[in-house]
């Protein structure tokens, strides 16, 4: 899919799906507000896994050096959106 077609809404939809895959207790309504504080299973390895999934889904490579700053759904959304812009 061409990057131009990826509106913020579409990114949200696909990112929420990705979060639900990683954290099955989330759903479409709760995924966008997910953070390390609200999701007990979210540790740095899960962040790494989210980055792998994001690479598969959006073809964006995010370096391990960004792991400490990705603490919520919104953090990852912002990173992906900026890469796709």
């Amino acid at each position: 899919m061409a990057a131009a077609e990826l509106t913020p809404e579409r990114i949200h939809k696909r990112l929420a799906r990705l979060f639900i895959k990683a954290f099955p207790e989330l759903d479409a309504a709760t995924a966008p507000s997910a953070s390390q504080e609200t999701v007990g299973e979210w540790d740095s390895l899960m962040t790494l896994t989210l980055l792998m999934l994001a690479d598969d889904e959006f073809s964006v490579k995010i370096g391990y050096d960004r792991i400490p700053e990705i603490r919520s759904y919104n953090d990852l959304f912002a990173l992906i959106a900026s890469r796709l812009a």
């Binding site: 990683a22 099955p24 007990g40 390895l45 899960m46």
Partner: peptide, 14 residues
């Protein structure tokens, strides 16, 4: 896949 292992393993660790 590695992702399957991490996702399921994460739950099991609880």
């Amino acid at each position: 896949t590695a992702t399957d292992i991490v996702i399921h393993g994460t739950r099991l660790l609880k």
